[in-house]
């Protein structure tokens, strides 16, 4: 790792984080408010009429799903915007003419987006703890899932940002693919509550594995075996890394 241009990585990372701090209100307050709304609606209003799910109160049950929902969408939007905006305004020229390789660019952009989403995820967990009694049975596993999700979805967002040729496309994938997958991925319910056909279909939703594994870290209950959760996130991370490597090798959408 001696050969890496660490100063270049740090420059990109600092630059990206400075935008986060510049728009702290947006970055920080809006997820807190939206999460609080979820707790008021699903936790207190509706949740009080729902029985415990697999031995966990409904309010507490949805915490891991909510954290995942926010972390995934934040990681994607931060990373995709982070690389799309320089493309849009043209400042990408500097990145492409600098002595940095794809790994350094990814470390800078994805590292910053992952940091932001990790930060927001933590804020949500703290906010949630004000509303419900929650426990974390496996803190290390919880941290691992959180980190892996932040990093892999930031990578995914980075790819979207490079792929997108306009602002509509930038919103398209998160809106049409990610949000439905997350909502149908067991954020607010246990898979076992679904009819058998839907249970089977749901198994093709990769987000199910992530939420299940993350929830297991909290309460020890899971929809799928924890190993398959780890495999799923590992596979997703690997696919994204491969895609980014190919993008920089071929110059796709970056270097004509």
């Amino acid at each position: 790792m001696m050969g890496l241009n660490w100063r270049g990585v740090a420059a990109i990372y600092r630059f990206e984080m400075s935008r986060f701090f510049r728009t702290l209100l947006q970055s920080f307050v809006s997820p807190v408010i939206s999460t609080s709304l979820y707790f008021v609606v699903f936790g207190a209003a509706i949740g009080s009429r729902i029985d415990e799910v697999e031995g966990v109160s409904y309010g507490a049950f949805i915490v891991p799903g909510l954290v995942m929902l926010t972390v995934m969408t934040q990681a994607i939007s931060n990373a995709s915007f982070g690389i799309y905006f320089p493309k849009f305004i043209g400042t990408i020229y500097e990145l492409l003419s600098a002595p940095v390789n794809f790994l350094e660019i990814v470390l800078g952009y994805v590292g910053a987006a992952a940091t932001k989403s990790l930060f927001i995820g933590t804020v949500i967990m703290v906010t949630a703890s004000l509303f419900v009694d929650m426990q974390v049975l496996h803190p290390l596993s919880m941290l691992a899932f959180l980190l892996l999700t932040c990093v892999s979805f930031a990578l995914f967002g980075f790819i979207i940002g490079i792929w997108a040729e306009n602002f509509e496309q930038l919103q398209l994938v998160p809106l049409l693919i990610v949000t439905p997958l997350v909502f149908l991925g067991g954020s607010f319910y246990s898979i076992s509550m679904l009819p058998p056909v839907w249970q089977w279909i749901t198994m093709f939703n990769p987000v199910v594995y992530l939420i299940s594994g993350f929830r297991w870290s909290f309460y020890g209950v899971a929809d799928v075996p924890i190993v398959s959760s780890l495999l799923a996130i590992g596979l997703f991370l690997g696919l994204c890394l491969g895609a980014v490597w190919w993008i920089f090798r071929s110059g796709w959408r970056l270097r004509p």
């Binding site: 100063r7 740090a10 990109i12 600092r14 500097e94 990145l95 600098a98 940095v100």
Partner: peptide, 19 residues
């Protein structure tokens, strides 16, 4: 240029990017 950036930070960024 990134419109919201300060002049000096923008120049520092360029230097850092080049290692």
């Amino acid at each position: 240029l990134e419109p919201f950036d300060k002049v000096i930070n923008s120049v520092r960024f360029s230097r850092g990017l080049f290692g």
